[in-house]
């Protein structure tokens, strides 16, 4: 497991494209302490390493696949309705480099 500290949490937050106040990083650090300790305890539960991780709540599968038929797309107006910066029917961003 990667060792965490304030710097790592900050880096982690920035990778998620946001920042927090120093106070919050400290609150988070405490939360990390508690949670990782709890997770350590979970690692000691009988049989925890004898089972597969569970994604779906019960054994389930499907055979359904969508037919390859195009649906009517959104109108351009609708598609862009919630975008704040639009030019020539496209969403504007500061120039993306790299």
């Amino acid at each position: 497991m990667v060792k965490y500290d304030l710097d790592l949490l900050k880096k982690c937050a920035n990778n998620l494209m946001f920042d927090m106040s120093n106070d919050q990083y400290n609150v988070l650090l405490k939360e990390f302490d508690v949670l990782t300790k709890q997770m350590e305890v979970l690692g000691e539960i009988d049989g925890v390493n004898d089972v597969e991780p569970m994604t779906f709540p019960y054994p389930v599968y499907t055979t359904y696949l969508r037919e390859d038929v195009a649906e009517t797309p959104l109108s351009k107006k609708e598609a862009l309705r919630n975008a704040k910066d639009v030019e020539d029917g496209q969403i504007v961003l500061p120039k993306v480099v790299g």
Binding site: C12, A13, N15, L16, F32, L35, V48, N49, P53, M54
Partner: peptide, 24 residues
């Protein structure tokens, strides 16, 4: 941040996947 950290490749086994195993 908690969620992201538990999905790190190096952490999954002890966090995300372990939680999924406990779920089972």
């Amino acid at each position: 941040v908690i969620g992201s950290y538990s999905l790190f490749k190096a952490n999954q086994e002890e966090l995300f996947l372990r939680a999924q195993k406990v779920r089972r």
